[in-house]
Design a protein around this nucleic acid. Structure first.
Lengths: 199, 199
DNA sequence: TTGTTTGTTCTCCTGTTGTTCTCTATTCTA
DNA sequence: TAGAATAGAGAACAACAGGAGAACAAACAA
């Protein structure tokens, strides 16, 4: 979880411990008074930091909108967006749920998980049912395994080879052939950085 | 690992033992006061040494950034015992460190992680360098992938087949053959329940 | 509706804090 | 004994945390 500064921690403790506040969220001015602040703008920065840290719900302009995020739904892990299969768009799961990953896979840049469907990368040790952790990125190096959107339609997980004037997507399966596209047909959506499998 | 000097050890002990510090990392000035130092610059050198030694997280300029590495890891994760290779005993790591795993892999029963060495399970998608999560168990079902101790000497990761009077360990590599043992030659040490790979 | 409250955004300012230097003293070692 | 390692002091700097206040728009109340 993100590190809180002294003031952020202080505010969070007040929000969490004060019974009145739990019943009826305070306005910024009320909180300011309690904290000895004279500027709402200053408080707003702190509240925003708590929202970023996932401890307070975003309040979208509502008045008295400071609401704590319940412990159960506090963000941990990375979002699991759906299944990815060669030849089909990402099958989004109806309700985006988070899955837990090793700390080292939860970096600072936006990342998400997909469940692999199909055997097109089996020679790389990526099996049907495995979870892959993807770092969002529009660019990748040759040799990276990427999530690629083809013709704005299909999404697939393949090894990338960029050449002048063409892009080649290499499956890792002896029964499949590389696919060649024009650069404007392919959009890179992310780079494979981790894999998780349950037995 | 690097050896700590007297002062470094002293600072590390304070960081590790003080409950207040565990809750809220101190500023340099606070630590200086506690140590009887008058110069932040002096303390900074020691903290840097601890960062180099891997005992303290790098803090990238953030205030109150002194965080123990082990503190975060001690609470969660499972012990990483060493490398496992077909044909050799587990190569124990000098200092048992914990690695973070998805919550679902950290069950209630004792579990540990090993890093895979070699290609003997490559056809099962278990590659050299992968981490496998093992649940300690002396028994397993046919078809399970297990950590097996052979003749009290070698440890290996293989798929298990138990038959009356013999135990067969199946590698998953077209270039290797199954190995057949008498039941008293084999001790099952754990069952594979998860796999983690970093790219 | 109208006026007030309230959340949001912005710029500017201040003191704190981590970092990087150089310089000095002490201890240990070849 | 000379040199290296360890330890500290202090200055100077840049990044950071925290705050003030103005201006604005959305939300709310009368």
């Amino acid at each position: 979880m993100m590190r809180l500064t002294r003031r952020q921690q202080e505010i969070y403790d007040i929000l969490r411990s004060d019974a009145d506040i739990m019943q009826r969220p305070p306005t910024y001015d009320e909180l300011c008074q309690r904290l000895g602040l004279r500027s709402r703008g200053s408080l707003h920065k702190h509240i925003q930091a708590l929202v970023m840290a996932g401890l307070v719900e975003p309040m979208e302009g509502k008045q008295r909108g400071i609401r704590l995020v319940s412990a159960a739904q506090q963000e941990q892990g990375i979002p699991m967006l759906g299944r990815i299969a060669a030849g089909h768009p990402i099958e989004a799961v109806e309700q985006t749920e988070n899955i837990s990953v090793p700390d080292a896979m939860a970096g600072s840049k936006p990342r998400y998980a997909l469940q692999v469907s199909g055997d097109s990368m089996i020679d790389e040790g990526i099996f049907d049912g495995d979870y892959v952790v993807i770092e969002q990125s529009a660019a990748a190096d040759n040799g990276d395994i990427v999530v690629a959107l083809i013709d704005q339609q299909e999404t697939t997980l393949k090894r990338l080879e960029q050449q002048p004037g063409k892009i080649i997507l290499h499956p890792a399966n002896a029964t499949m052939s590389p696919m060649i596209y024009k650069p404007d047909q392919i959009q890179i959506q992310g780079i494979l950085i981790g894999l998780i499998r349950y037995y």
